[in-house]
Structures are given as structure tokens and as C-alpha cells.
Design a protein around this nucleic acid. Structure first.
Length: 465
RNA sequence: GCCCCGUUCGUCUAGCGGCCUAGGACGCCACCCUCUCAAGGUGGUAGCACGGGUUCAAAUCCCGUACGGGGUACCA
């Protein structure tokens, strides 16, 4: 049995149509023309949320009719990103291209019924009610009528057919355009709720006309507000940094991503934003979906991600950041997992994204640190008695007991003697930065020789300023 | 141009006629904590686009204006 044969079975089931509310069927229908981006992922998520929230079925369909831009190798990638996000599907993947004969049949029927007509390359109508190779078919849009429907998000929406031109339902290259294939497939698959982006709102009357011509009851539509960039324009793969895969590789957690995405165009009634997906499913309704566009705010995503990272058990955290650390070309080869583990708790509460973990650890694995200019200026050059502090610490570190506790007391002692705060200058000298995880335990691990080497280096550099 | 949709703090949102002196979150600022930076805690900053109605009462309903967006393809 082919994939599509299974579909047609659903169709016949659906034809019997006793649409019960517990028979909700949603679908996500990406076209494999690019990587999964945040806008598509949000659409997929809302379909999934709705299906799960009402115990319905979530179907995955690949809209691979756009021959030229189609990139089959991306199909698996899209699946992989969906799985990563935790968006699982109950049926499919089904491939639109498998339904080509059916699409052709529908258009053919339209021609014989006079609902559509053949046009030549100049868009001039051609006599005849048969599909002709090399010629397109246009739908005959009725005159003076109104197409209206109830959108679950937007309420009543209506369009005058007079504002619609006779749109193409079959291309001259022998393939169905999106409008036709999408409408037919939704009907055949018994889709009850089409949840999609608002950019498709104005194509809806055309879809309704097609369905009407087929004698099929259209699904309920829900048009989600668009995700926009800083300029308030629809997110675009070209302009915007929106690939789910990119976020994944930088070390965002799927839980954080999904949680954040769920809050774009929807909000719970109880002010609790960060919460498990099960709770979001339980609270989700289409009626609560907003109408206005939402900006994808990375700062907020970062906050969510940091929160989810903090909740991780330490072993998982270490396991997850290790690949990012060892992949770092500056110090990756020197990374010692036991050291990573020793200070993981401190890093875990500071890091927003796994990929940033290196910034907290690097000085422990680097032979030669680089000084952050701002830190060096503020922490040493402009610090009171910066040079004296370093001199004092260098002298004291030469023979003091090398334990975190003693190191702490020693640095403090030098500062007290000089009447200044000594911790930051030492930190800058040893780590290159003015901020970081608590200093003395790592310093104990780093060792006396390395510490002295850096202190002396910093002292020389300071003298040269 | 035409059609459609939208408009609550900078951002994401709660609000579905009185509970609003408009709540939460991110960001930002301050303070506490503190070896630093974070985290955490406390406090603060900032908004119903505008104008008309309707109503005893409007962020909430109606109309208009402005602004923004989407569509208007043999793309999806």
C-alpha cells in the first residue's frame, strides 16, 4: 500500500463525515525549500498543541510540489528538528507529490464542470474542457459573491469574489500550484483545523472556492499572528537569524525554545510563563491566541534558556557542555572533564547558552590567556595601587600554602595592608577578565607556577602602559 | 492602487463593561547579598495609537482617522 493509498482511505472515512469534536485532525505541512525556521516551528507547535490539547491527531505532510526549489535532503533535517523540539506526529510523513494524480483529477473535474478553464501562454482562454500539456488552468471565480468564514483566531472574515482574479489551479508544466494541492490534500486527509500563518489569510477565500467546487466542507481555519523581526516585517530565512538548527547548535534547550515559542501569540491566564509543556498543552486553546504580530525576542529566550539550564542536573550539564568546550580551537584540546565538573555548578548558574560555557572556563585550560582590554584598564590600570597589589601577591604567592582558603586570605591580606580592594586586580591578572566564577578554588587547580607566570605577565604589561 | 488583518509598558503578554490607581515576564535602573561577574531577593522605570460615539460606567462595544503588517505570482 502506498503512502497515499492510506490517505485515500482516510478520505472515504471522512466522506462519511460525522465530524465529532474528538476527531480533530491538524497538520503541519512544510515545504522542503529550506531549514526549519522559528516561524514554521511555531506554526508546527501550535498545531501540535491544539491536537494534543483536544486529543486529536497531528499529521505531518511534506509539500514537495515546488519542483525547482525543492531540496529532498532537507526533509530529514526538518523531521530531526521537529523531533528535537518534541513535536511528534501521529500520521505521516505524507508526501504531497504522491497525490499528483488526485490533484490532476480534481482539476480535470473542474474543467468538465465548467468551474475552470484552460488558458494559453498569454493567459487567453482556450476552448475545450480537457487538460492540455503545456497549458495552465484557471479557476472561474464567481461574480458578485462573498466568501466568508469564521476564523478561530480572528472571527468573521469575508472577501468579495470580485476582488479575486481567476487564479491558476494547474500549471502549464503539469504540476499543481500550492493553493490547489493544499486544499485537496487537506480535504482528502480529513483535516478539521487548518492552523497556519496569517500570511495565508487572503488565500483562504480561494481555497474555500476550490473546496466548494469539490463539494467538500472546508476545515476550520485559524490564522496565527506572524512572527516579525525588529523592523516588524515577517521573519524571513534570508534576512533573519531564524534557523532552529542554529539555535540548537549554539546550545539552546528544546524545552526553552518550545516554551518561548508557545508564548509568541499566546499567553496563559495565570501569569506563569516558564512551565512544562504538559501544562501548556493543558492550558492551550485557539480562542486565546492573539491577533497581533510578535517579535522573536532573543533576550527573553536567553532568560528562559538560562532558567532551564539551571534546573538541569549537574551531570547532564557537564555532558552537554563538554562538546562545546572540546570543540573550541583555543583551548579545546586541553579541556579536563574532571575540572569542568568541579566548577560546573558555578558555571551552570551563569551561562545562558551552552556555547558560552567556554568564556567561564577558558582561563583554566589556556596556556596564555588574553587580557580583555576593558577589564585590564578598569581592574588594573585604573585600580588604586594596582601594581603594588600585584607585587604583593606575587611575593606572597611564592611560598604560601597553595590552597583555596590560604590564597583567599593571602590576597585579602595584601589588600588590607595597602588599604585597597585586591581581588579584582588579581582576578584580571590571572583570568584576563574582571568577572567570573569564584576565583580561589580554580586557582588552586591552576597551580602556583601558572598563576605566578600570569601575575608577572600582567605586572609587566601594566608597567608598559 | 485595491483587498484583508492588526494596534495594552522598548519587547512578549494578562485583561473579554465596573475587581484597573491596567497585572506578570524579559530588558533597563537601584539596593541587599558578595572575592568579581552572575544567580537569588527587594524596590523602581515604562503602556491602553488618536478622535468621536454608546453606557450610570470603556483598555474592553460601535464608527472614523492615523500608523503598521499581510496579500494582490503558472512562490509557498
Amino acid at each position: 500500500m502506498t503512502r497515499w493509498a492510506r490517505l485515500t482511505m482516510t478520505t472515504s472515512l471522512n466522506d462519511a463525515r460525522a465530524p465529532m469534536s474528538d476527531q480533530v485532525r491538524c497538520r503541519f505541512a512544510p515545504s522542503p525549500t529550506g531549514f526549519l525556521h522559528v516561524g514554521s516551528a511555531r506554526t508546527a507547535l501550535f498545531n501540535w498543541l491544539y491536537a494534543r490539547s483536544v486529543g486529536g491527531t497531528f499529521v505531518l505532510r511534506i509539500e514537495d510540489t515546488d519542483g525547482d526549489r525543492n531540496r529532498p535532503e532537507l526533509i530529514e533535517v526538518i523531521f530531526d528538528e521537529l523531533r528535537w523540539l518534541g513535536i511528534d506526529w501521529d500520521e505521516g510523513p505524507l508526501f504531497q507529490s504522491d497525490n499528483r494524480d488526485r490533484h490532476r483529477q480534481v482539476v480535470s473535474d473542474m474543467l468538465s464542470n465548467g468551474q475552470a478553464y484552460v488558458v494559453d501562454e498569454h493567459n487567453e482562454p482556450v476552448d475545450g474542457t480537457e487538460l492540455v500539456d503545456g497549458q495552465a488552468v484557471r479557476f472561474r471565480v464567481p461574480v458578485g459573491e462573498t466568501v466568508s468564514f469564521i476564523d478561530s483566531v480572528r472571527g468573521d472574515v469575508s472577501f468579495a469574489t470580485d476582488d479575486l482574479e481567476d487564479f491558476v489551479v494547474w500549471r502549464s508544466n503539469g504540476t499543481p500550484p500550492f493553493l490547489l494541492a493544499n486544499a485537496v490534500d487537506d480535504a482528502d486527509m480529513g483535516i478539521t483545523h487548518a492552523i497556519r500563518g496569517e500570511d495565508l489569510l487572503s488565500t483562504t477565500p480561494k481555497v474555500q472556492l476550490i473546496l466548494q467546487a469539490m463539494g467538500v466542507t472546508p476545515p476550520t481555519y485559524a490564522h496565527l499572528p506572524l512572527l516579525v523581526n525588529e523592523q516588524r516585517k515577517k521573519l524571513s530565512k534570508r534576512r533573519d537569524d531564524v534557523s532552529i538548527a542554529d539555535y540548537r547548535s549554539r546550545g539552546y534547550l528544546p524545552e526553552a525554545m518550545v516554551n518561548h515559542l508557545a508564548l509568541l501569540g499566546w499567553g496563559p491566564d495565570d501569569d506563569i510563563e516558564i512551565r512544562p509543556i504538559e501544562e501548556i498543552v493543558a492550558k492551550f486553546t485557539l480562542e486565546r491566541v492573539n491577533k497581533s504580530a510578535a517579535f522573536f525576542d532573543i533576550d527573553k529566550l536567553d532568560h528562559f534558556n538560562a532558567t532551564y539550564i539551571q534546573q538541569l542536573d549537574p551531570d547532564t550539564f557537564v555532558a552537554n557542555i563538554m562538546p562545546h568546550l572540546t570543540a573550541d580551537e583555543r583551548f579545546g584540546a586541553a579541556v579536563d572533564e574532571s575540572v569542568v565538573r568541579q566548577f560546573a555548578a558555578e558555571v551552570q548558574q551563569r551561562v545562558n547558552v551552552y556555547a558560552d560555557a567556554g568564556e567561564w572556563y577558558d582561563w583554566l585550560f589556556l596556556d596564555d590567556i588574553e587580557f580583555d582590554d576593558k577589564s585590564f584598564t578598569k581592574g588594573l590600570v585604573k585600580a588604586k595601587k594596582g601594581a603594588e597589589v600585584l607585587d604583593g601577591v606575587i611575593a606572597a604567592f611564592g611560598d604560601c600554602e597553595w590552597t583555596a582558603e590560604v590564597l583567599n586570605e593571602t590576597v585579602r591580606g595584601v589588600g588590607d595592608e595597602l588599604g585597597v580592594r585586591s581581588a579584582v586586580p588579581v582576578r584580571v591578572a590571572v583570568t584576563g577578565r574582571s568577572g567570573g566564577i569564584p576565583l580561589y578554588e580554580p586557582l588552586e587547580v591552576l597551580g602556583r607556577d601558572a598563576a605566578l607566570k600570569r601575575l608577572n605577565l600582567a605586572r609587566e604589561r601594566l608597567a608598559a602602559v
